[in-house]
Design a protein around this nucleic acid. Structure first.
Lengths: 222, 222
DNA sequence: AAGAAAAATGAATTTTTTTTCATTATTAAG
DNA sequence: CTTAATAATGAAAAAAAATTCATTTTTCTT
């Protein structure tokens, strides 16, 4: 995951960075709120960890800015004091969670997991490679503009993407995407795959849906 | 809101009940986990507050049960000890938030607000009267079973419901639901309204979409 | 390299959805 | 009670989407 830590205490920042990096994440550190804002506006993080009190711009202000600009990235606030007012304020300004110092790395990690999981399961978007699916409006966007899909094509793509990296058999697609519980002697799947591929390739220039002979289809993100 | 408090300490339970009632909520108290489970299975709460340690069934176990049964109601856990392991566990088992005792009523209230708001803005359902719209799968359910709508019918219903109580002009529908920015000399809207009404009335026995002569349409929930 | 199974393809057909049209019913206002 | 505007309706036409079909291409096995 891409994680931003905004924390002016270098010792804490470095310790967190080291620990999170060991978990396999990419961590960027900002030393004050201003720096944090710059990073947030240019990079897409999976989670942002903000210290409450920071030079120049405070964590709450950064948080407010994030929300005002429509950014929904999960935010965790670090508060030094465990005053009730602070906690209330944190939630009010759109933070997703907060931790009172001092805290263990284990706890922070658990919160990150929880907050990211919550975000992903509640978000109505599915992003992979150069594709962004708007699950609510059933639209697909690429850097080169929207791809207009029919209902079945969208359902199929959504299913493949949400199981990316796994081979999906045609029987499975028949049951899930087509909602048929009998095997028909048709090739609708092949045809729909073909049409979907054509539309994707038109915009992306490459084929993300691979066939696995005798087994099914698999969506590849890189 | 409908709130369930599961707490064996009667003093705490009653104090919370009183305070929450003063805020205008309906509060039900369960004295142990078993009682809580029974209530949860029969009543639809807006938020459930569970004490961690309770006789018979603990709060975490209640929480696990809630999630296993697919219930997505927001859960707040009350923990006596502020041990890290507890907090981690709470999130792991699907709680949405937790508070460490002792806590102020003000804090609990803020957390309830946050958790419910988060739930409502992130939920993919729209419920009104006897209708439940599954926004992700674009399906509509009633107590008497599913209503199968076409795409346009669903979009129209969704728009009317999310503006229930307000009169929606045909010009507005043209722009939003049909995505046309010119006024056409057609009556698609009237026709679609008619078909939608027919399907709704078939299952609900009544017409929820009223016409306002010369102004537009309005969705009425009661 | 040849044969058989599986997958891809182009085009036709069927089904569903969306829109239009002509007519009837309802509403508000004089 | 009429009249004119607005809304509802049934049915047809047009458009779009889903499925089928016949054929070609690819892949794996021997």
């Amino acid at each position: 995951m891409e994680i931003l830590i905004a924390e002016d205490d270098e010792q804490i920042a470095n310790s967190l960075k080291k620990n999170l990096a060991e978990e396999g994440h990419h961590v960027m550190v900002a030393n004050d709120g201003q720096e944090a804002l710059r990073s947030i506006d240019s990079i897409l993080f999976d989670v942002v960890i903000l210290d409450w009190r920071m030079p120049k711009v405070t964590g709450v202000e950064v948080c407010k800015h994030i929300r005002n600009s429509g950014n929904k990235v999960p935010v965790i606030l670090l508060t030094a004091l465990s005053q009730v007012a602070n906690k209330v304020e944190a939630l009010k300004y759109g933070a997703d969670d907060y931790i009172t110092k001092p805290f263990s790395f284990e706890e922070l990690n658990a919160r990150i997991q929880a907050v990211v999981r919550r975000y992903q399961t509640n978000s109505n978007e599915l992003t992979v490679a150069n594709l962004n699916l708007d699950l609510l409006n059933r639209k697909v966007f690429t850097p080169r503009g929207e791809i207009s899909l029919t209902g079945k094509e969208f359902d199929l793509l959504k299913y493949l993407i949400s199981h990316k990296g796994f081979i999906i058999s045609k029987e499975e697609l028949t049951k899930t995407v087509w909602d048929w519980n009998f095997s028909t002697g048709t090739n609708v799947i092949e045809v729909t795959i073909k049409n979907l591929r054509k539309k994707l390739e038109e915009k992306l220039g490459k084929n993300l849906i691979k066939s696995v002979y005798g087994e099914g289809y698999i969506f590849i993100s890189e």
